[in-house]
Design a protein around this nucleic acid. Structure first.
Lengths: 241, 241
DNA sequence: TTCCTTGTGTGTACGACGTATCCGAGCGAG
DNA sequence: CTCGCTCGGATACGTCGTACACACAAGGAA
């Protein structure tokens, strides 16, 4: 016969919403999520270890497994935790809503750099708070005369841009954090030898010119907003909204 | 005194370009890169293990360390390897160039799903082939009357959108590959219980409507191109080019 | 020739990791 | 009281990245 997994065990979110039988224990999904997020914020995603988590919780290594089925589950829980309370102001113009969505997502991802490094499972996970965010975004696009595919394409385009921009931005910050570099100058001075070597090959004249002439090289905020403006203007121009 | 790292050991790329002293050995960075990429393409990034790599090369576990300083170095080598030969057709309109850049990057990332899962170090690494790509993209934007910051912002916006869109797309494919699901139907039928449970909560009416009414839900290519059109139209409209 | 340096692969070993499995203590329901 | 459930503890296994000491080969200097 097949393996005995016929009853596939209620999903994480389903279990969480059940009555909670006398929640008096020292461990709970909430506490686990909070602690794990603290660790990851302070020391990066690699610091997230079932053992480290248990230590931080003052508990044996296997104890968290009672509440979380494994590391993948833990990561999903963390994602949902940081998205809690993400609210989009209602009743605004679509453009303002999408802009707010983008800026708040950026803030969130800069506060939790590990969000940009999650494995595929955790990226795709349909957590309640992320579902809620999608719902809010879609309903901000409702009533503009767009069909459902178009509405989703707008949301997805903004979301894709934001995540793409933030993978870069948080990779830089993660690197700085890991190396203990404090500002952009230190970063540049450490990476300079590599860059200089590349430039000396003479293969990248346009890039070299950029390095010398650009004035916004380190203005991540400006770069993000400039790209965001492209995206929003493109949506408006293409869909005539 | 400080640690004795005063001479910081030539960078990976610097070493690679040196004359190569009698390349008669069984191991070489090329062979290592090719083998590692094969493994990752076939079995995903988690299958990349120094030991597994060594086995595949028919060599002792520690042998590759002679050519690659560690796993991070290996990943950079792999990235450079798959970007080899990425050429943008010259002499085209900026819009066509950016579109080609986007479509080819998508192809590349779908062929090598692990590109979307790299750790921060490997994402940022300035490999020769990626530098060359940046150079080509920037020079395709040269001569349009844009200043250097604007040129880079165009490149970065397109790149950010592509990477953001592809993290989703390759997460889906990675999941399907790992689980052995062959098509989108199987994916959906496996994820359906989760989704149905969420929908039953009644919290996501707009999203639910989308699920029922949308016709492009599974057309990843259409979604990608639609978003890309937004971005390119937005660039054109904003910068008047 | 002989020696010695330099580059390359081998063997062994260590400390961390994720997690399977078995235990026992506590407690509410009958 | 006792049954059975829930929850944390203890132990253990296999795998990971990689430090380290060694062997062996080729080639230039003596």
């Amino acid at each position: 016969m097949a393996t005995e997994n016929d009853k596939p065990r209620a999903s994480l979110w389903e279990r969480l919403e059940r009555p909670a039988p006398a929640q008096r224990q020292t461990l709970s999904p909430q506490r686990i999520a909070t602690t794990a997020v603290q660790i990851a914020d302070a020391e990066g995603l690699e610091a997230i270890t079932m053992r480290r988590l248990a230590t931080e919780l003052g508990v044996a290594p296997m104890a968290p497994y009672r509440h979380v089925s494994g590391k993948d589950d833990l990561l999903e829980l963390m994602v949902d935790h940081v998205y809690a309370g993400f609210q989009l102001p209602a009743g605004q113009e679509w453009r303002q809503s999408m802009r707010t969505l983008a800026l708040r997502t950026r803030d969130l991802m800069l506060r939790h750099l590990w969000l940009a490094q999650l494995p595929p499972q955790a990226r795709l996970s349909l957590t309640p708070n992320r579902m809620s965010l999608a719902e809010q975004a879609l309903s901000a696009l409702d009533g503009l005369g767009l069909d459902d595919d178009a509405m989703m394409s707008v949301f997805r385009a903004v979301d894709a841009y934001v995540h793409g921009a933030l993978t870069d931005e948080s990779a830089v910050r993660t690197l700085m954090h890991e190396q203990g570099w404090s500002d952009g100058d230190e970063l540049r001075s450490e990476l300079a030898p590599q860059m200089i070597w590349h430039m000396r090959t003479g293969r990248y004249p346009t890039f070299k010119r950029y390095l010398h002439a650009a004035t916004r090289k380190d203005d991540a905020q400006w770069q993000f907003e400039t790209g965001l403006t492209f995206v929003l203007n493109g949506i408006a121009a293409t869909l005539a909204i």
